[in-house]
Structure formats: C-alpha cells, structure tokens
Amino acid sequence: MNKVSQAGKGELVFAGALFLVSLVVFWDTSGLVLPTNNTVISPRTFPYAVATLLMLASLGIAWEVFRGRAAIPEGAGADSTFQRADFKTMLIILIGIGLHTFLLERTGYIIAATISFWSVAYAFGAKRIVRVGLIAFVFSALVFFSFTNLLDIQLPEWFIERAISKVGS
C-alpha cells in the first residue's frame, strides 16, 4: 500500500466523516415511527438505500486514497504541490456568516448584513477597517430599503431600520 500523503490524510478524514453521516442516517431511519395507515413501502426503504450508497461511496473514496489517487483540489494543476489551506481567512468569514445568522432576527437586517459583508471583505484583503465598515453599513442599508420598499420583501428590523426610515420620511 502506498504512503498516504498529507492531502490524502485530509481526504480520509472527509471520507470518514461522510461514513459517519451514513451511520447517522441508518440510526435515524431505524428509529422512525411507522405510520399505522395503509402504506405499501415503508418510509425506511429509501433512506436505507441512500445510506448504503453513501457508505459505499465514502469507502470507495478511502480506497482511492489508499491506492494513491487522492483528489487534486479544484483549480490546482496536477503539477502544483499541495499548499496548506489558509484556514484563518476562512474562519473570519465563517464567524461573520455565523454572526449574521445569529443576529438577523435579534438586531435586525442592517447590523447582521454589515457584519457579514465586513467579514468577507476583510478576509479578502480589504484592510482599512473603518472604511470597509462604513461601506458595509451603507450597502446593507441600501439593500434593506430597496428590498423592503421597492420589492415588498419583509426583512427583520430593529431600531436602526426604524430610525432611518423615520428620518427618510
């Protein structure tokens, strides 16, 4: 068996995680409450089939890796050596979007969108924090008012949104 490369190890973890997911599907399906009315095919049949496919496919990936055929990341040439992923940049975005999700219905659209916009822009190299924040705020406010007023789409509001619309009208 070939030696598994650094990249291959990552892929093994990926395949392992999906294998675990397939086990979760099996477990969840086995615990399904079956209906008492007349159904010919149990609601368990299809999930079992899917879980089996997922399990086999994740094993297949592992097998590929062991045979030395680890994946070449998208956009990277076959000849390019593997680089460590820049997890710090990614983490900033993840936190930004996570905060967006958490705050949206608590502090309104503008604050949530300002944070996510800012985090993505910052992660992609816009380093003048205050300026980026200002642009993010203006952009979010523009999006909020054009969607709620022009398109009648409801977005969560908080005192900021109400204050601005008061000033505007």
Binding site: I97, V120, F139
Partner: peptide
C-alpha cells in the same frame, strides 16, 4: 475590487 465583490455576493 475583489473584497467588495465577494462581500456583495455573500450578502
């Protein structure tokens, strides 16, 4: 600029 482009797409 890319930072704003991606931030806009994400938004």
């Amino acid at each position: 600029p890319r930072p704003y482009l991606y931030a806009g797409i994400a938004t």
